[in-house]
Amino acid sequence: MAKRHYIPVTADVPGISEDRRAFIRKVIRTALSAEGVDFPCEVDVLITDDENIHQVNLDMRDVDRATDVLSFPEFDLTPGQLPKAEDADPGTGLVPLGDMVISWEHVTAQAKEYGHSNRRELAYLVVHSVLHLLGYDHLDEGPQKRQMRTREEAILAELGITREGD
């Protein structure tokens, strides 16, 4: 992708190396490109633990439990709809797509539960969150969920991350 995105990845848990942060950025850039985001944008990422994501979930969504990933989109989009250039922050020139919060404890537990690597689980959660930032949802068990799952698998395949390969 020719244009640069600003993707700060912060962590308040140990074990999130610069290589892991670079991997998260790569996954985000790949997902954005796959969804046609060809304008400079910003996605903020926090890697935390179950206790902190539980608190964020409670504070922001009034849900009293930990979870694997939370997405806070800046815009109310539908799949395939993208923000406009005029949505860019005048100070940075970047379109702020939103924030994602990922529980590293959930990454490692779910990777073990599903029998694949932490890398694959992390990539899945990052792609999942990017799609939420771009208007995808899965609250129903019907077409929306199937559409989101299809996009997730396509983007992971583009990254060379498949269920069979992990």
Rank of each mutant, 00 (worst) to 15 (best):
P79N: 06
I161A: 04
F75N: 01
E113K: 11
P40M: 08
V45G: 09
S17W: 09
H106L: 01
S17R: 12
M100A: 05
R21W: 07
E152V: 00
N57P: 12
D137W: 02
L82W: 00
T92C: 07
T10Q: 12
I24N: 07
K112L: 13
T92L: 10
V101K: 09
E51A: 09
I24G: 08
V69L: 09
K112T: 11
M148E: 06
V107M: 05
Q144V: 01
D99R: 15
A66I: 06
L133M: 13
A31G: 04
N118G: 15
P8W: 07
K112D: 14
F75D: 02
G142Q: 03
D64T: 04
D137K: 10
V9K: 05
A22Y: 10
A22V: 08
S129P: 05
V95Q: 01
H5M: 15
P8D: 07
Q81W: 01
E18R: 14
H54K: 12
F23K: 10
E74K: 13
E164C: 00
L125D: 04
Q147C: 00
V127G: 00
I53Y: 12
T150N: 11
Q144Y: 05
H106Y: 13
T150K: 08
V127M: 02
S103A: 15
T10C: 10
R149G: 00
G98F: 10
E121Y: 01
V101R: 10
A31K: 03
I16F: 14
K84M: 09
Q55S: 15
L97N: 12
P96M: 12
D12C: 14
T150W: 03
H5T: 07
F72D: 13
H54S: 11
V27H: 01
E42G: 06
I53V: 10
L77E: 12
E18I: 11
D89R: 08
D44N: 10
V9T: 08
S117Y: 07
A109S: 14
E141A: 09
E152A: 00
D49T: 06
L139Y: 14
A109N: 05
D59K: 15
F75Y: 14
P96E: 13
S103F: 06
H5V: 05
A31E: 02
G15Y: 15
H138E: 07
A31D: 03
T10E: 15
Q110H: 04
L131S: 04
G115N: 04
D38E: 15
M148N: 01
R149T: 00
A31M: 02
R61A: 10
L131M: 11
A2E: 08
V45N: 10
F72K: 14
L139K: 07
P79S: 03
M100P: 01
D50G: 12
L159C: 06
I161P: 03
A157K: 11
F72R: 15
V130W: 09
L133S: 05
T108W: 02
Y136E: 03
T30V: 12
C41W: 03
E35Y: 01
V126G: 03
T150Y: 05
G142F: 00
H106G: 15
F23H: 13
G80Q: 04
A123R: 09
E141F: 06
M100F: 07
K84D: 15
P90D: 06
